[in-house]
């Protein structure tokens, strides 16, 4: 049966030649970049995520250090416009106006995602929720990433007592499922603001990363280039940050992206359970939990927050996958028929 068929030998041998030719004369960084740019899913995701972030953050405007930008969307989340009735079924006022079919009504309209039962503009609510979720994601990624790297690097580099102590600490934290610890902390600190919540969630989700970094450091510290650096008189700090860390960066970047895609789901889940972001602030998980009962009557209130969570998490996952492929020296890309034909031709010429 064909389930167990496989490609033929000649192709495998030709493929090896193509790979060697491709990476000739390139630095490690160039190879990684080249591989990453070739990963179609990752590139599409990168563009999608970037445009989503631009779109979301420019919609309602922002203010950093006194420099503000008002945002291009006409409603704020606190506005209470009247419920739109024209053009909606009579029992469903406030239906969405988003129209992607080219024609007279093409465009966003007054309330692209519709209005809730009070008349609040749902587009602005979703945009604010997405802002919050993205902020939480980035903060968790930064905090957990930094802690995981530092703890893992120290434990792996110094070994001995430091390693044992830090790893027991990691054991303590890993034993408690993140969602349990996150709920306990989130329930009490969620009301103090989104960034505070994200900070706490970051403080409990670095355990796995630190173990991986430690593992990498344990192998890398025995390598010749570390000895060479030490002989040359480099300090421990210099060896850790300038010599070993760049070599472990592949593992770190990949796992931080995975951590971030997990983080956006974690925040949404906590807010959904009531342990995360609390009203009057808005987050995507909170929106889903507030409007899940209106699914049968006003389905538009339900779809958008979930779709945005999926888009963000999916793109981050794909970017992580692209990075993993790019950093993995054993990874081999798919060779197309055209490449093989070209390779065979050039082989025949020689």
């Amino acid at each position: 049966m064909a389930i167990f068929s496989r490609k033929n030998k000649v192709e495998e041998i030709v493929d090896g030649d193509i790979f060697n030719k491709e990476t000739e004369g390139l630095s490690q960084g160039q190879i990684v970049l080249k591989r990453f740019f070739r990963h179609r899913g990752a590139m599409i995701s990168l563009i999608a995520l970037f445009s989503l972030v631009l779109f979301v953050f420019s919609a309602l405007g922002f203010k950093i250090f006194g420099i503000g930008y008002g945002g291009w969307w006409k409603y704020k989340i606190t506005d209470l416009p009247t419920l739109r009735t024209d053009g909606c079924p009579i029992e469903l006022p406030g239906c969405p106006t988003l129209n992607l079919i080219p024609g007279k009504h093409f465009g966003l309209g007054d309330h692209p995602f519709g209005q809730d039962d009070l008349g609040r503009d749902y587009f602005s609510l979703v945009m604010r929720g997405a802002e919050r979720s993205l902020e939480v994601m980035v903060v968790i990624g930064l905090v957990a990433g930094a802690l995981g790297i530092i703890v893992g690097a120290l434990a792996g580099f110094y070994r001995g007592v430091i390693d044992a102590t830090l790893m027991r600490l990691v054991d303590f934290i890993i034993t408690v499922p993140v969602i349990v610890l996150g709920s306990v902390l989130g329930y009490h600190f969620g009301s103090k603001g989104v960034l505070f919540l994200a900070l706490f969630l970051g403080l409990v989700s670095w355990g796995g990363l630190s173990r991986l970094v430690r593992g990498d450091f344990l192998t890398l510290r025995e390598r010749e280039f570390v000895d060479a650096a030490r002989v040359a008189g480099a300090s421990n700090r210099r060896i850790i940050f300038k010599h070993i860390l760049p070599n472990a960066i592949g593992v770190i970047i990949v796992n931080v992206t995975l951590l971030m895609s997990g983080a956006i789901l974690l925040e949404a889940a906590l807010s959904y359970l009531g342990f995360g972001v609390v009203p009057p602030d808005v987050s995507l998980g909170l929106l889903i939990s507030q409007y899940q009962d209106s699914f049968t009557t006003r389905p538009w209130l339900f779809w958008w927050p979930g779709l945005i969570i999926i888009i963000v998490a999916l793109s981050v996952n794909f970017i992580g996958d692209g990075l993993r492929d790019a950093f993995d020296p054993r990874q081999r890309r798919r060779i197309s028929r055209k490449d093989r034909a070209a390779e065979r031709q050039s082989a025949e010429k020689n």
Binding site: S261, I288, P305, G306, I310, A313
Partner: peptide
């Protein structure tokens, strides 16, 4: 895609 699904949704 399944990785990215919020289960409550």
């Amino acid at each position: 895609l399944m990785y990215s699904l919020p289960i409550f949704w």
